[in-house]
Design a protein around this nucleic acid. Structure first.
Length: 512
DNA sequence: TTCCGACAGTGGGGTCGCAAT
DNA sequence: ATTGCGACCCCACTATCGGAA
C-alpha cells in the first residue's frame, strides 16, 4: 500500500468530528490492506510507530526538505527506512540520522511529509488514536469491540492483537491470556474533588493511601522477577531491592500492582523528584540504590499461582494480596461501608496527609481490574492549593489553539515589588476564556516575537496547583506542580498578588 | 430529552543519558 | 565540562461524541 493513501485517510479522519465516521474510515482502510501491510497500517493510523522510539524529534524533523512531486513511497519502504534509522547509534550518529531523515522526507510529497512528521513526533492530530483504531479494527474484522479492547489490555499494545486478528480471525483473541512475565496495561484512577463525592459515586469502598512515587507491575515466576512501569517498560535492572522483596514473598508465582517510594532517615516519604531520579538512574545503579533505597508498596494482585484474578471483585483480589504480602509492603487502607460512613474516609485522608503522602485513592469493592472503559471505579482525592499570580507573558497556541494566546507565564511578587516567574500553564481554560485572554493580553503586549508575547504585569489570575517543587530553571528556585487556571481576578491589582515569601511559608518542607 | 463515560488534545516540570560542542 | 535533545516519569483539564438513563 502506498503511504499517500494513509496520509489521505488520516486527513479525512481529521476533517470529520464524528467518531462513528472516523471508525468507518479506518475500518475501510484496514479491510483493504494486504496481509503484509496490516501490521504497519494499523499502528500508523493509530498514531504509533511499531519501532517505538527512534531518537528523532521535533528539532531534526523541522529542517525543511524539498518534497517529492509524485507519491512513490510504500508503507513497507517507510517501515524499512525507519527501522534502519533506529539502528544507527554511536559517534557521528546524529548527523547520520539527520541525513537518513532528510532522505526519507525528500522521497515524500508535502502531504506525506506532514503525515510522517506527526507520526514520528507522536502528534498526528487526527482525533483518533489507539481507542478509535481498536473500534476500527473490531469493525473491519467483525469482532466485538470489548473483546478486542480486552486483548489489547492483556497484550499491552495494539499491534500483536491486530496481527493475530487479521491472520486468524476472532478466535485468535483466545491466545491473549494473562501470563506471568508478560505485562498488562495498568488500571488508572480518575479524579474526585472530595472524599464525600468519591464515596457517593462508589458506595461500599476502600480508601487507600496515594503514594507519590513510580507505578510498578511486579511479575515473579519461580526465581525470575521482572518489573515494569506504567508504560510497560522493563526496569528490573534498576531496582534490585524490588527483586529481593519479590523473592521474599511466600508465593513463587504472581503478578502484583504497586508503587515504588522511598523514605528519609526520619521515616517520612521522600519527594517525587528524588524517587524519579533514583528510578531513572541506569548507569551506576549500585550507588543510586545506596543513596536512595526504595521500597515497594503493593495494592493489588492480578494473578496468584495459576489463577487469573482480573475479573474478580476487588475485595477478593485484596484477600489474595493480603495472603501473599505482609503488612509493611501492603498499602495502608480503611474500609468504608457507604455514604453514611464518609467520616471514616475523611479521617483516613487527614491521617495520610499528616504522614506526608499525596492523598487517597477510593476504590469500589465490587469492581474488576480493568484498563478498559469499565467506568471509573478508582477515584483519587488530593488537596488543592490556590494562589493569585500575575501574567508576565503568554505563548501562541498550537493545533486547535492556533491563533489563540494559550500558555501563560506566571509570576509571584518579590520583596522589591518586581515579579519572579514560577512556571507556566495552559490548563483549565475554557474556549471562552481562551478567546477573552487572547484579546485582553494583546492589549497589554509590549513585545511579540511570534512565539512569546511579553505583557505589562497587570493581569491577576487565580491558579490551582498540587504542590511546590525545587527548580533550577526559575529564579526563586521553586516551581508549581500541575498549575492550572481557576479564573481571572480582574477585581485585584498586581500589587495584591501573592508573594514568593508567603508561597515558601506555605510549603516549609520545600527549600529552594 | 438529558446526562455522563470515554477520548483526544494541549501542553506543564524534572531527571537521566547520550552526542555534540 | 557544558549544552541541547529525546525519552519517560509524574500529571489536569476541557470539548466533543454517542450511548445510557
Amino acid at each position: 500500500m502506498l503511504l499517500t493513501r494513509l496520509a489521505r485517510v488520516s486527513q479525512e479522519v481529521a476533517a470529520t468530528s464524528a467518531r462513528s465516521r472516523k471508525i468507518a474510515l479506518l475500518a475501510e482502510l484496514f479491510r483493504d490492506a494486504e496481509a503484509d501491510d496490516v501490521p504497519l497500517v494499523i499502528p500508523y493510523l493509530a498514531g504509533r510507530l511499531p519501532q517505538g522510539r527512534l531518537g528523532i524529534g521535533w528539532k531534526v524533523l523541522s529542517r525543511p526538505v524539498t518534497p517529492a512531486a509524485e507519491p512513490t513511497l510504500t508503507v513497507r519502504e517507510v517501515d524499512a527506512r525507519l527501522t534502519g534509522l533506529g539502528k544507527v547509534s554511536g559517534t557521528g550518529s546524529q548527523a547520520e540520522r539527520a541525513r537518513l531523515v532528510g532522505e526519507l522526507m525528500g522521497a515524500a510529497t508535502a502531504d506525506e511529509q506532514r503525515f510522517l512528521f506527526g507520526l514520528i513526533t507522536g502528534e498526528v492530530r487526527q482525533g483518533a488514536l489507539d481507542a478509535v483504531a481498536v473500534e476500527g479494527l473490531a469493525a473491519a474484522t467483525e469482532t466485538p469491540p470489548a473483546d478486542v479492547r480486552r486483548a489489547v489490555m492483556l497484550a499491552g499494545s495494539l499491534q500483536p492483537v491486530a496481527r493475530a486478528l487479521l491472520a486468524d480471525g476472532p478466535t485468535a483473541l483466545d491466545r491473549f491470556r494473562l501470563t506471568v512475565g508478560r505485562p498488562v496495561l495498568p488500571m488508572l484512577a480518575h479524579t474526585a474533588s472530595s472524599v464525600a463525592e468519591a464515596v457517593a459515586k462508589l458506595g461500599a469502598c476502600a480508601a487507600e493511601e496515594k503514594l507519590d512515587g513510580i507505578r510498578v507491575q511486579v511479575h515473579r515466576d519461580g526465581d525470575t522477577v521482572r518489573i515494569y512501569t506504567r508504560t510497560l517498560d522493563d526496569i528490573t535492572d534498576r531496582l534490585p531491592e524490588l527483586t529481593s522483596a519479590a523473592l521474599e514473598l511466600r508465593g513463587d508465582r504472581f503478578i502484583l500492582d504497586g508503587e515504588v517510594i522511598a523514605f528519609d532517615a526520619a521515616g517520612r516519604p521522600r519527594s517525587f523528584q528524588e524517587i524519579a531520579g533514583r528510578v531513572g538512574s541506569r548507569v551506576d545503579v549500585a550507588t543510586a540504590a545506596e543513596q536512595v533505597p526504595v521500597s515497594p508498596v503493593f495494592f493489588d494482585a492480578l494473578s496468584v499461582g495459576d489463577r487469573d484474578l482480573l475479573d474478580l471483585p476487588f475485595t477478593e483480589r485484596h484477600t489474595e494480596l493480603a495472603r501473599l504480602v505482609p503488612e509493611p509492603m501492603r498499602v495502608r487502607r480503611t474500609l468504608v461501608s457507604g455514604p453514611d460512613d464518609v467520616r471514616a474516609a475523611e479521617d483516613f485522608l487527614a491521617e495520610t496527609l499528616k504522614r506526608g503522602h499525596e492523598g487517597v485513592v477510593v476504590k469500589a469493592l465490587d469492581a474488576a481490574y480493568s484498563a478498559g472503559r469499565r467506568g471509573a471505579s478508582w477515584l483519587k482525592v488530593k488537596p488543592v492549593h490556590t494562589l493569585d499570580l500575575v501574567v508576565l507573558a503568554v505563548e501562541w497556541g498550537h493545533g486547535r489553539r492556533t491563533g489563540k494566546l494559550s500558555n501563560l507565564h506566571l509570576g509571584a511578587r518579590t520583596a522589591d515589588g518586581s515579579f519572579a516567574m514560577l512556571g507556566k500553564t495552559f490548563k483549565g481554560m475554557t474556549d471562552a476564556m481562551l478567546g477573552w485572554q487572547t484579546e485582553r493580553l494583546q492589549r497589554l503586549a509590549v513585545e511579540d516575537d511570534g512565539w512569546v508575547v511579553t505583557v505589562r504585569p497587570e493581569l491577576v489570575v487565580e491558579i490551582a496547583y498540587d504542590g511546590l517543587q525545587r527548580s533550577t530553571r526559575y529564579p526563586a528556585g521553586v516551581t508549581l506542580r500541575f498549575a492550572r487556571v481557576v479564573r481571572y481576578r480582574e477585581d485585584k491589582g498586581p500589587e495584591e498578588a501573592d508573594t514568593i515569601e508567603t508561597l515558601l511559608a506555605a510549603h516549609p518542607e520545600v527549600r529552594p
